[in-house]
């Protein structure tokens, strides 16, 4: 279509907007970069990720590993020798890709990290554009598969949150794990520590974030035009739609939550701080 646009200033960052349009994108870029750097660093540590009944969410579920929280054995033999082993590296790609393909984050990082556009009604740095219409971004359409993985992971995170309220009577750090998850055999008693609340809050935020997903909204009822014929779908659709209105908030709160939960467990496990036990 032939365009006869007004001869207004065009080009990267050109706009007639007078507000600080770059602040939101800059803040998003800084926070996302910090998160990626911290999560990568934490994932490669393979140490200080658990303390007694607390397990960092970056390492949950611990499929293989050295802690008593592991579900199977230690480092598997098939692990490539060139890659340093960490239980987090086995599982983190799934929640990471769930966030990467999330409809909210997509819009946020296209603006903040790729300036496509840098902000609404602001000039872009590139002329070429394929969006999610062609490779490579067409793969964003698999978001629902990472949703399935995220829903599965939530079961483990709730298991961890529950365990965080049951403190072992003997020090778990003295426990020598042998192949199987030892928790059923360890004598425990109920208690509440700051770590229990941190892990509970983190799991709750991740649950809200996952259950407010746009793909889930579609799958539970959005795909139907005759919701009235299925009261169960209608109920699920209504609930997910209600949560979906706050998807952006849940996305950010859960991002901070998971980072802070890992940091808390890490600081306690490394002895920098002592867990506060309320009872």
């Amino acid at each position: 279509m032939a365009q006869a646009k007004p001869g207004l200033a065009r080009g990267f960052g050109k706009t007639s907007r007078r507000d600080a349009w770059w602040v939101q994108s800059a803040a998003t870029a800084v926070v996302l970069t910090l998160f990626i750097v911290y999560a990568t660093w934490a994932a490669f540590q393979n140490a200080n990720y658990w303390h007694d009944n607390y397990l960092s969410p970056f390492y949950s579920p611990e499929i293989f590993g050295q802690s008593p929280h592991r579900w199977f054995g230690p480092k598997p033999g098939w692990w490539p020798a060139v890659l340093p082993f960490s239980p987090a590296l086995i599982i983190l790609p799934f929640p990471a890709l769930f966030r990467f393909t999330c409809y909210y984050y997509r819009g946020a990082y296209y603006k903040a990290m790729w300036a496509d556009p840098p902000a609404c009604a602001v000039g872009e740095p590139r002329n070429a554009y394929t969006g999610e219409h062609g490779w490579p971004l067409i793969v964003q359409n698999v978001h629902r598969y990472f949703l399935y993985a995220a829903l599965f992971f939530l079961l483990f995170l709730w298991h961890d949150a529950w365990k965080a309220f049951w403190f072992p009577i003997q020090q778990m750090s003295n426990y020598n794990p042998r192949g199987q998850n030892p928790f059923p055999d360890v004598p425990v008693k109920f208690g509440v520590g700051l770590g229990s609340l941190v892990l509970l809050l983190n799991t709750s935020l991740l649950t809200f974030y996952t259950l407010s997903c746009h793909s889930l909204r579609h799958l539970v009822g959005g795909r139907r035009d005759d919701l009235s014929k299925s009261p169960r779908s209608l109920l699920c659709y209504t609930c997910v739609s209600g949560l979906n209105k706050n998807h952006m908030r849940f996305a950010w709160f859960s991002l901070f939550g998971v980072m802070l939960a890992d940091l808390y467990v890490r600081l306690v496990a490394s002895g920098v701080i002592k867990d506060i036990r309320f009872f």
Binding site: Y103, Y104, R106, G107, Y110, K111, D116, P117, C120, A121, Y129, T130, G131, E132, H133, G134, L137, I138
Partner: peptide, 14 residues
């Protein structure tokens, strides 16, 4: 071309 939309929500904003 719905795939061209990259969900930046500018349309909703205005």
């Amino acid at each position: 071309g719905i795939g061209y939309c990259n969900i930046t929500k500018c349309c909703t904003t205005v």
